[in-house]
Structure formats: C-alpha cells, structure tokens
Amino acid sequence: MSNVIEVNHLHVSYYGHEVLSDVSFEFGPGKLVGIIGPNGAGKSTMIKAIMKLIPRDRGEVKIFGESIEASRKRIAYVPQRSNIDWDFPINVYDTVMLGTYPKLGLFKKPGAKEKELVNECLERVGMMEFADKQIGELSGGQQQRVFLARALAQEAELFFLDEPFVGIDVASEKTIVGILGELRDEGKTVFVVHHDLSKVKDYFDDLILINRELIQSGPVESVFKKDIMSRAYRTDFTIDPQTGGLSYGVN
C-alpha cells in the first residue's frame, strides 16, 4: 500500500516569524508515531498545519494520496485538553455521538447503527457507566478517554492526538496506550504529540523529532540516540547504564 501521509517542505509562520521550516516526512499504514521535541519546537503547530487548522506558508501534504480536503473524513483529531471548553453543556454520550456526524452527511440524524457504534466506543475506553455525565464533571483521564472514544466513533484511518497523556491518571494512560496499539495493529496510522521521553521506547514504533525543523524521523532505535537527541534539545543527553534510556540536564 502507498503512504498514508506525505509531508513535503512544510513551512509555517506566526506574525511573520517562521516557527516551522522545511519539514518533510512520510509514513505508511500500521504505524504508531511519537512527535517529540523541546517546548516551543512546533509539535502542535505541525499537526494543525497538516490538517489545515492553521495556515501554511508553503509546502504540500498528501493524505492517502489526496488533499486534506478530500481525505478529511478519514482523519480523527484529539486536541489538547486545554483547548476544550469543559463547561459546554453536553454529556459523555452526545460528545461521542458527534464523532459519527462527519460520515452521516447533511440533515441526517444518527440511527440505530450510530447508537450501537457509540456504545461500542464507550465500552472500549471504559466509559460506558459515565454516559450521562456532563463532560466537565469528569477527571482529566476520563475526559481524555471520552475524546478518544469520539475519535474512534469517526471510524478514521489516520489519527492525530495532541499531548493526550498530560494531566491524566496512570490507569487512563494505560488504557489509551493500549487502544492506540490496537489501532496500529488494525492497520491504522496514529500520530501522538508527546513530551515524556522516559516512555518513548515503550509507546512508539517510530518518531518525528523536531525543533522548528525536522531533526530526524524514522524507527525509534534510529532516532532516539544520544547525539541526535542532543542536537534537537540543544543540551547533553546521557545514557542510563541500567535501562539504556536517555536523560538530559540543563546546560
């Protein structure tokens, strides 16, 4: 099968200041990809620009060989929790039901098929018992699981998650990581903006390492190396003699 995503020479700027410069990469199906880099590196900006949620200066993005406009229904996006209005008066069930709308089309109401799908997605993330709860009443981990369920209800083939593990409990993180692995095994492609370097080797197959430009992309073992990571974070990384993992200090 051809590549799921191809990004070629992507440039993005804010108020005339370039924040992403000449980023190019490609990935095929069945990939769980971590997007890593220091704070302010442009990780969230990159996925928003790929989906045209913010303007691009220049560059081309192909999803399943097509434009983002042609392939949007095949993409699911889970934004950072800080970007969501948790006071909005909607319950868990209806939040997940929103995920079915892109494929319903205009003026069509959800039917038995969509209701069954919502129930399946809530069961999959362990949130069925909270179906009637207002989303603002949930813990951070529960909220993140609900928005993952909404993404699952889209029946997408390409997923983007922006910092899904920030501010959530250990059980929710374990649940989400497990589901993302299942999606990968089903042939889906999943991109996750991530900041906890101690878990990179456990969570991902491939990495995109950026710091305003692409430093390296590819399998974890070829990217998560002392010299490459030091170049991206502009500080010295050391190798833990017990775990073989990387850690860094501040110069």
Score class of each variant (00 low, 15 high):
residue 57 D to A: 13
residue 86 W to Q: 01
residue 14 Y to T: 03
residue 85 D to H: 11
residue 77 Y to T: 03
residue 27 F to L: 15
residue 35 I to P: 13
residue 38 P to C: 02
residue 66 E to I: 11
residue 10 L to F: 05
residue 14 Y to Q: 01
residue 18 E to Y: 14
residue 91 N to G: 01
residue 28 G to Q: 02
residue 19 V to T: 12
residue 83 N to R: 14
residue 88 F to H: 04
residue 18 E to V: 15
residue 26 E to C: 11
residue 43 K to A: 03
residue 34 G to C: 04
residue 47 I to G: 00
residue 62 K to D: 13
residue 50 I to P: 05
residue 19 V to C: 12
residue 82 S to E: 14
residue 54 I to R: 11
residue 6 E to I: 10
residue 60 E to W: 06
residue 14 Y to W: 06
residue 63 I to E: 01
residue 49 A to T: 12
residue 83 N to D: 15
residue 33 V to G: 00
residue 25 F to Y: 13
residue 41 A to Y: 15
residue 36 I to W: 06
residue 18 E to A: 14
residue 20 L to E: 06
residue 47 I to A: 04
residue 85 D to V: 09
residue 87 D to E: 15
residue 15 Y to E: 15
residue 88 F to A: 00
residue 81 R to G: 11
residue 50 I to E: 04
residue 48 K to E: 10
residue 55 P to T: 05
residue 42 G to K: 11
residue 31 K to S: 11
residue 53 L to R: 10
residue 62 K to P: 15
residue 91 N to R: 02
residue 52 K to W: 14
residue 90 I to K: 04
residue 65 G to P: 08
residue 42 G to E: 07
residue 25 F to E: 06
residue 66 E to V: 13
residue 46 M to Q: 00
residue 50 I to R: 06
residue 9 H to V: 10
residue 90 I to S: 05
residue 45 T to H: 13
residue 39 N to I: 13
residue 34 G to V: 08
residue 46 M to V: 05
residue 68 I to V: 12
residue 56 R to N: 00
residue 64 F to P: 06
residue 79 P to E: 13
residue 15 Y to N: 15
residue 78 V to Y: 01
residue 40 G to K: 08
residue 9 H to S: 14
residue 22 D to Q: 05
residue 88 F to Y: 11
residue 91 N to H: 01
residue 59 G to L: 03
residue 56 R to C: 00
residue 75 I to T: 02
residue 27 F to V: 14
residue 47 I to M: 04
residue 39 N to A: 09
residue 55 P to C: 01
residue 26 E to S: 12
residue 36 I to S: 05
residue 42 G to N: 07
residue 71 S to L: 06
residue 30 G to H: 05
residue 58 R to W: 11
residue 71 S to C: 08
residue 80 Q to T: 04
residue 52 K to D: 13
residue 6 E to K: 13
residue 35 I to C: 10
residue 23 V to K: 08
residue 82 S to K: 14
residue 61 V to T: 07
residue 37 G to K: 05
residue 23 V to N: 05
residue 39 N to K: 13
residue 88 F to R: 01
residue 46 M to W: 01
residue 80 Q to Y: 00
residue 45 T to D: 08
residue 15 Y to W: 12
residue 67 S to H: 02
residue 38 P to M: 00
residue 34 G to T: 04
residue 76 A to T: 08
residue 43 K to H: 01
residue 72 R to H: 15
residue 76 A to F: 03
residue 44 S to C: 06
